[in-house]
Design a protein around this nucleic acid. Sequence first.
DNA 1: ATCAAATAGTTTCATCATCAAAATAATAGC
DNA 2: GCTATTATTTTGATGATGAAACTATTTGAT
Lengths: 152, 152
Amino acid sequence: MDAAKTTRINDLLTTVYNDILRVEERELKKSRFKDISIKEVHAIDAITMYEHKTTSQVARQLKITPGTLTTMVNHLVRKGYVVRLRSDDDRRFVRLGLTRRGRLIFRAHESFHRHMIQSFLQDMDDDQVQLIEKALLNLQAFLEYPETRTDK
Amino acid sequence: MDAAKTTRINDLLTTVYNDILRVEERELKKSRFKDISIKEVHAIDAITMYEHKTTSQVARQLKITPGTLTTMVNHLVRKGYVVRLRSDDDRRFVRLGLTRRGRLIFRAHESFHRHMIQSFLQDMDDDQVQLIEKALLNLQAFLEYPETRTDK
DNA sequence: ATCAAATAGTTTCATCATCAAAATAATAGC
DNA sequence: GCTATTATTTTGATGATGAAACTATTTGAT
């Protein structure tokens, strides 16, 4: 593999990587939702508009401990984005839902991502998108199945 | 733009995005460098083996405040990865350097990234790499020059 | 039916990363 | 020689996080 090329792609990937969260955070501060952090937005995103997941389901998805999610949910409830719903069938479970305001954030975040991906894939045909997808799958495999790494 | 495709790429990008730091952190904990966090590795990476940058240069590069870098450098000095060198020409400046141990981390991190990019670009020819680069440049433009966004 | 074990969530306590603003040290410009 | 500027550090606060102890509820075995 050509070293200069690898370096160029690495630098680009690194820059983009670091920018994503920073830009999301900055956009938030400019929006009408100034009382919320990007991590909290991601929690809202995981809670979703579409079903009422339990606390541990959401924690697992976000790959944080249930304790951490509990405190995030406390904040989000206090700020009026999230509601806790007790399950009636099994009262140990807490199900999470979004308020109207929470759903607004959910959709705004969704829209940001949609626009981001549209820029990413700008002017590409199906084959080209397919190639991008393959590259991302390669990367995913590298990250998730380290035992398959041939080098290292 | 095809919505299903956009969603697929978005989900992949999100997964990969979230995995990178987690995997880097996990690899560290398995390595002989257990007393260091991934943020500290990135500071070491920014300090570099090759020159002696000042505290503010490094802080600017990492996009953190000088105060934050000062505390990180305190930790890294205490743990034996970094040295502070006072400039002789202008004694206000603090120049940063790596110890032998710091350089080991620097190279290990560099190597991780190289392998990651090699997986990412696995089996691709020059044209294909070029396409990936273009996609990343699109994304970078989206993130860094929001005023050029046509939609939103 | 009872009680021990398992399960879901919360609380507590500690740590890390971070910033803003005040403080300190050194230099530059008049 | 002061005063303003610059580089760094200190201080005080906050948010995100995990581990482990704790509470509430349910399940399962007897």
